[in-house]
Write a protein that binds this DNA or RNA. Structure first.
Length: 565
RNA sequence: GCGCCCGUAGCUCAGUGGAUAGAGCGUCGGCCUCCGGAGCCGAAAGCGUAGGUUCAAUUCCUAUCGGGCGUACCA
């Protein structure tokens, strides 16, 4: 992972130190103290242990081989040559196998806090994205059933990632791809028809591979309430599209509502059907044919995926003339790029991983770069209930819905739960435990810190105290617990950048717990409102900044920041 | 069989090419004349196994064991 050193409080110091170290290398070479060709990619980091200083570099160890000297010897030479006064460094030490540790002047964290306060609500925002257009497409569930736990996870990750990218300076759009065409709609129509007939007392067998969920029975009951039995003697070819259209509208409305209740708002709801109707799907197949990416076999048209390293081709148009999902998906992604996105991120379930390589290959085939399409694969959510695995299946209709999750566990707790885990991990979700332990969800630990601060600020206002952040006030902040909290707050913009660039929203959930812990520790060790008027007002500034960071971070992951709990 | 993901504390999960691997829950022990105890402080407990690369591996590579997913003219 390349070190990201953005234009942030911490990033700027790292950059300055980085330059100072390079300067020291050059000087040592000029003095013939060190001999080397190029300077390796060393890191300037904030060490895990505070006893190792405020910043640290592995430069001496990275260059040991090139310089043919021991790391500690190189560190000695460098530390004598480094001019880090501009960064605010007080002392430089050599430690361990050859780390060079920098300790800043005592007031550096106070200056950090001043800057945090100056930036206010914008603190955390940065410009590393340079306004580049990026799209995050997530959930995109078939509108043939209800949203389930897997969709909930996708929603939590996708929405959070989009927010983080926005904070990091990208121009972001959230999109939901509506699979309202193709095979599953045919099957859907057959299932609806069967339910329709069954509800009207016809003895009809339900399709084996149909959609067994109770929700579509509800939909057809509503349909009958509105339209009666007038489709009973109608030709199947006539009534099936009517059922499907009716149900799609209903189901889509349900999906929008469930996502909205989960705190997710999309910029675009994109209909697959429009791609077929506009001719985009047939056009993309023609384009690929013209460029010799397509071959015929067994009556079907295949994309030659062997040209990008796959073992075999993939069907674009079936022998029956109907294009596959794959063909539509290529047209869809072409459409995305035509809309000006430089990068599109798709969040898919692990069951689609076989689709990744051929989609990326297809992007090359239609003239884009495969890296412009990023697929974030999300492992499954394995549900436990009564100690047993609950097998989810949309086909059989046994699954826990997003709606139930929000009702039983709560939106904040559910979102925090999902966004705390990396997309890579297979989650074991014990529903009984989740319900019974709702109060133990770490989200409340974070929210509690926020509510506590709000309460303090309110009490302070009544006492006639207000946050003051001029230099004289901030200089009164000297306790370890206070400084540790500032240090944690100062990390915020870099945490956002890291999470956004690496597509790891879980970083922020973890970070917020660390902020809350640092605050609770501060609270336990330092009285905010005390007899010392000026110190109280300085600490109020710190508390207020903490609340602001928590509020901003929680917002990014779609969790509320209540003032009272 | 082949491909992808994952094996970190009793449980659920973070994390990292570096100097002492973390949190929540659970267990054990402390802390309320005081701003919110949904809190604070402390203890026990862990990188599946075996090789390799490296100054340095839990992290990268290989093998192996275990789990998940995929391997359709489904999506």
């Amino acid at each position: 992972m390349k070190d990201i050193q953005a234009n942030t409080i911490i990033g700027n110091i790292k950059n300055t130190l980085h330059q100072a170290i390079i300067g020291a290398f050059e000087q040592a070479r000029a003095n013939e103290q060190l001999q080397f060709e190029t300077i390796a990619d060393f890191l300037v980091e904030v060490p895990r242990e505070e006893t190792h200083g405020d910043f640290s570099t592995n430069a001496a160890m990275m260059m040991a081989k090139a310089c043919k000297k021991s790391p500690r010897v190189i560190a000695e030479i460098l530390s004598a040559a480094i001019d880090a006064t501009t960064a605010g460094v007080d002392t430089i030490e050599i430690a361990g196998p050859g780390f060079i540790n920098f300790r800043m002047h005592a007031d550096w964290l106070n200056n950090c806090l001043a800057q945090i306060i100056t930036e206010g609500e914008d603190f955390g925002r940065s410009d590393v994205g340079k306004g580049h257009k990026i799209q995050v497409e997530f959930v995109s569930a078939n509108p043939t059933g209800e949203l389930h736990m897997g969709n909930a996870r996708g929603a939590a990750i996708g929405d959070s990632l989009a927010s983080l990218l926005d904070l990091a300076g990208f121009t972001v759009e959230r999109e939901f791809y509506i699979n309202d065409a193709g095979n599953q709609i045919e099957k859907f129509a057959l299932s609806l028809e069967a339910r329709y007939l069954q509800l009207l007392d016809k003895d009809i067998e339900f399709p084996e591979d149909g959609y067994h969920g109770n929700d579509i029975i509800t939909v057809m009951k509503q349909f009958i309430a509105q339209n009666g039995d007038k489709y009973l003697d109608c030709k199947p070819e006539i009534r099936r599209p009517v059922f499907a259209e009716y149900a799609l509208v209903k189901k889509l409305a349900d999906i929008k509502q469930a996502l909205s209740d989960f705190g997710v708002k999309y910029d675009v709801w994109f209909s697959e059907r429009t791609l077929h109707e506009s001719g985009a799907v047939t056009n993309i197949v023609k384009q690929l044919q013209n460029e010799d990416w397509v071959y015929s076999e067994d009556g079907a048209l295949w994309l030659d995926c062997r040209r990008f390293g796959e073992e075999k081709g993939e069907v674009l148009v079936r022998a029956n003339g109907i294009p596959t999902y794959f063909a539509a998906d290529i047209a869809y992604h072409q459409n995305k790029f035509q809309r000006g996105f430089e990068t599109v991120i798709d969040i898919w379930g692990a069951d689609h991983h076989g689709h990744v390589a051929r989609m990326k290959g297809a992007m090359e085939a239609i003239g884009y770069q495969s890296r412009q399409l990023e697929v974030l694969l999300m492992q499954f959510v394995r549900l436990y209930q009564n100690g047993e695995i609950l097998k989810m299946s949309k086909r059989t209709g046994t699954y826990v819905t997003l709606k139930e999750l929000v009702e039983d566990v709560g939106r904040d707790a559910a979102r925090f739960f999902f966004v705390t885990r990396s997309a890579d991990s297979l989650i074991d979700f014990d529903l009984d435990l989740a319900k019974s332990q709702t109060a133990d969800n770490p989200v409340f630990y974070v929210q509690y810190a926020h509510a506590r601060i709000c309460s303090i600020l309110a009490a302070a206002a009544i006492a006639g105290l207000s946050p003051q952040s001029d230099t004289a006030h901030l200089a009164m902040i000297t306790e370890d617990a206070e400084l540790s909290l500032i240090r944690k707050l100062a990390d915020y913009p870099d945490e956002i950048i890291f999470a956004a660039v690496n597509r790891e929203p879980q970083r922020i959930a973890i970070y917020l717990q660390e902020v809350a812990a640092a605050f609770h520790n501060f609270y336990a060790h330092c009285r905010v409102i005390s007899d010392e008027h000026d110190l109280s007002e300085a600490r109020l500034s710190l508390a207020q900044s903490t609340a602001q960071v928590i509020r901003s971070g929680l917002k990014a992951i779609g969790v509320s920041a209540p003032e009272k709990m």
